[in-house]
């Protein structure tokens, strides 16, 4: 087998080894690459900045463990911006594991002096997807009578201000797609279209393409997609968290895949030329 054929058919174990190294090395020894701020992230940041101090926002933790690495850093960076403006937070989740992620991310607010029940509330999990979200949007007390920790929702001062979705200054979903939970399209329908609540999407990298039309049409105020958006947000709020560290590994992974794809194509082009030349002779 010549080198051109080899380039087209490299052993996948070579790729696996190189990919493992490409991810592991920058994780252990970070490269410290700077990220630039993209327009969708800038829009989200500026929209949150425009919210009055003391506003109440609703965040949906609609993801499972596989996507935690992309979405939890988005939540943590956003919470830092919320804390600077003393914005209050209510969380819900359409996956059974969602409240646990919410609990972990809300620790950022707790560490910054937020008080449970007064400044933030974790309502927990709801089953039933869009229909239940629609019922919650019209009357939150019809879906949640107890919060995640078993407290009576009616006894929490923050929840006493909330009578419907329209009482939130902003709603947001941290979403890994319509795989059992409430998807981004459902959130847009129930928050923006039904109640006119300004909406922001935080999604995994692969979902960015699906959600861009909403941003372009002005139906959502911002889209954060993947680890990259989380890293940009960390830069905007002035921290170096998990996303900033993860971007180095993701950089190397992407470049390696592009390199392999190019190598395969170079091999194919030259092999084709050689065989065409052979035929002519």
């Amino acid at each position: 087998m010549g080198i051109l054929e080899k380039l087209q058919n490299l052993d996948k174990r070579v790729f696996y080894l190189l990919m493992a190294l490409a991810i592991a090395i920058p994780t252990i020894w970070p490269l410290g690459l700077e990220v630039s701020i993209t327009p969708p992230v800038r829009k989200t940041y500026e929209f949150v900045e425009s919210l009055p101090a003391g506003s109440v926002v609703l965040i949906g933790f609609d993801y499972e463990p596989g996507d935690e690495i992309e979405l939890s850093p988005q939540a943590k960076a956003l919470f830092r911006q919320f804390a600077a403006k003393r914005i209050k937070v209510v969380t819900v989740a359409s996956f059974p594991v969602g409240p646990m992620f919410a609990d972990e991310c809300l620790r950022v607010l707790k560490d910054l002096g937020y008080e449970y029940g007064l400044d933030y509330v974790n309502l927990g999990y709801y089953a039933g997807g869009e229909s239940t979200l629609a019922a919650f949007a019209k009357d939150p007390s019809s879906i949640f009578t107890k919060d995640w920790y078993g407290n009576d929702v009616s006894s929490l001062p923050l929840m006493q201000q909330i009578k419907s979705m329209a009482d939130f200054s902003m709603a947001m979903t941290l979403n890994d797609g319509p795989t059992g939970g409430t998807g981004t399209h459902e959130w847009v329908r129930q928050s923006v279209m039904a109640h006119g609540t300004p909406f922001v999407i935080g999604c995994t990298g692969v979902l960015a393409a699906n959600n861009m039309p909403y941003l372009d049409a002005g139906q959502v105020r911002g889209v954060l997609s993947g680890l990259r958006a989380a890293a940009e947000y960390e830069k905007l709020v002035g921290i170096k968290g998990d996303a900033t560290r993860g971007m180095d590994a993701q950089s190397m992974g992407h470049v390696l895949i592009v390199l392999f794809v190019l190598l395969g194509n170079v091999g194919m082009v030259f092999a084709r030329r050689r065989s065409n030349g052979g035929e002519k002779r």
Binding site: L31, L33, S36, G226, R228, M247, Q250, S251, H254, V258
Partner: peptide, 15 residues
């Protein structure tokens, strides 16, 4: 695909 993959990461911006 290659442009989008490189455009999404800082190292791609450098290249």
């Amino acid at each position: 695909g290659c442009i989008v993959m490189l455009g999404k990461v800082p190292l791609g911006e450098k290249i």
